[in-house]
């Protein structure tokens, strides 16, 4: 799993992580969301991953929650004293992997269109 493993009393994953007390622990690396922010929202009553996502953008970046989803679910489970399997995992949305928009166009020009730096390796078809 991911390396963004928080440490501290009751933290998911036990005490083998590398963070010391007072360190900033990043949960969502795409959107820079910290463990403190997640815990603060849960304490204020936002105990679903859908709400936490919408307030913080956690899980909305290019990796679509591959790293943070499990970590947030574990935090919700711990704070609400539930089994993690009973915490709703949130909606998964397409595409599974980021795809280049131009690649979805029939007869589209390749990645040589001037503008953004695209690596052009994500042709849909």
């Amino acid at each position: 799993m991911a390396c963004a493993k928080p440490e501290g009393e009751g933290a998911p994953g036990g005490s083998e992580g590398g963070a010391a007390a007072g360190d900033v622990v990043v949960i969502c690396r795409c959107e820079d969301v910290t463990l403190d922010e997640i815990r603060d929202l849960i304490a204020r009553g936002y105990t679903t991953i859908e709400e936490i996502k919408r307030i913080t953008r956690c899980g909305m970046g290019p990796c679509q929650g591959r790293t943070c989803r499990q970590l947030v679910l574990a935090e919700i489970a711990r704070a609400t004293a539930k089994d993690i399997a009973s915490v709703a995992p949130g909606r998964f949305r397409p595409p599974t992997k980021p795809v280049r928009l131009g690649g979805a166009v029939a007869g589209a020009p390749g990645p040589d269109v001037e503008g953004f730096e695209g690596d052009g390796d994500e042709q849909v078809r």
């Binding site: 595409p95 280049r100 928009l101 990645p111 269109v113 001037e114 503008g115 953004f116 695209g118």
Partner: peptide, 12 residues
């Protein structure tokens, strides 16, 4: 046209 080079991360 340049938007074609961006990657789609999510649709809903």
């Amino acid at each position: 046209p340049p938007v074609g080079n961006l990657k789609v991360v999510r649709q809903w």
